[in-house]
């Protein structure tokens, strides 16, 4: 399985993401720049975290209007898997590839810590390597991770099983509605999540709970 990582000015988790994908798939991902209008044939496109465009205007707002995002949307419409982590999630939401919005943490503080996540839908291309309701560890590092959607959107997400990760055991770090940490698109091939699974994939990270997500997406693991 081939992967690509989207690069935009101000992202800072791109190297971590490239390292994780390289270690897990055995192949370095291709990289695409913000002005690229064409993305090579890959099975997985990842938008990493950081502070694209300095979080100016709204987190992810300007990045979402760059040409490469149009290319990402075209690939997503064809069924290619897309993952946005942290700022990547904010960018996907701003680009309209995922519903809702990510607002300032209710604490008004940047949170950098480990949380617990519950896998609330283990029946997606990204989570099939976990068991339903499994609790995993995952680091978070963000200032604007407070997921918001209107009541109709929220009940649709909940009803269709589009909420795939929820902060568990009282570890919601940002005030996110329904403890939402990660959602998938209606078609299930676009995942956005605030926590950083790429930072928990090997013993040197102190754990590997995030590894199964990439193994699932890359087709290396089809069941827990």
């Amino acid at each position: 399985m081939k992967s690509a990582v989207v690069l935009l000015p101000g992202l800072n988790r791109d190297r971590d993401m490239i390292a994780a994908l390289t270690k897990i798939s055995g192949k370095a991902p291709v990289t695409v720049w913000q002005t690229d209008t064409d993305i090579p044939d890959v099975d997985l496109i990842v938008i990493p975290g950081g502070f694209s465009y300095g979080d100016y205007l709204r987190c992810g707002a300007i990045a979402a209007r760059m040409p490469v995002l149009k290319a990402v949307a075209e690939k997503a419409a064809k069924g290619v898997q897309v993952i946005g982590v942290c700022n990547g999630f904010q960018i996907l939401v701003e680009a309209g590839l995922l519903p809702g919005a990510l607002m300032r943490n209710t604490s008004l503080k940047f949170v950098c810590r480990e949380v617990k996540l519950q896998v609330t839908n283990a029946n997606t291309a990204f989570t099939r390597g976990y068991t339903q309701n499994q609790i995993i560890r995952c680091p978070v590092a963000h200032h604007d991770g407070n997921y918001f959607a209107d009541t109709d959107t929220l009940s649709r997400l909940e009803g269709e099983g589009q909420v795939v990760f929820r902060y568990a055991e009282g570890t919601n770090p940002n005030g996110s509605l329904n403890d939402i940490a990660g959602i998938v698109s209606k078609d299930g091939n676009v995942l956005g999540m605030m926590p950083h699974p790429e930072n928990l994939i090997e013993a040197a990270h102190g754990g590997s709970d995030g590894r199964a997500l990439f193994e699932s997406a890359l087709g290396l693991k089809t069941a827990a």
Binding site: P99, A101, F148
Partner: peptide, 9 residues
């Protein structure tokens, strides 16, 4: 509609 406001919120 396209940039200055996020009409979701």
């Amino acid at each position: 509609d396209k940039l200055l406001a996020n009409t979701v919120i």
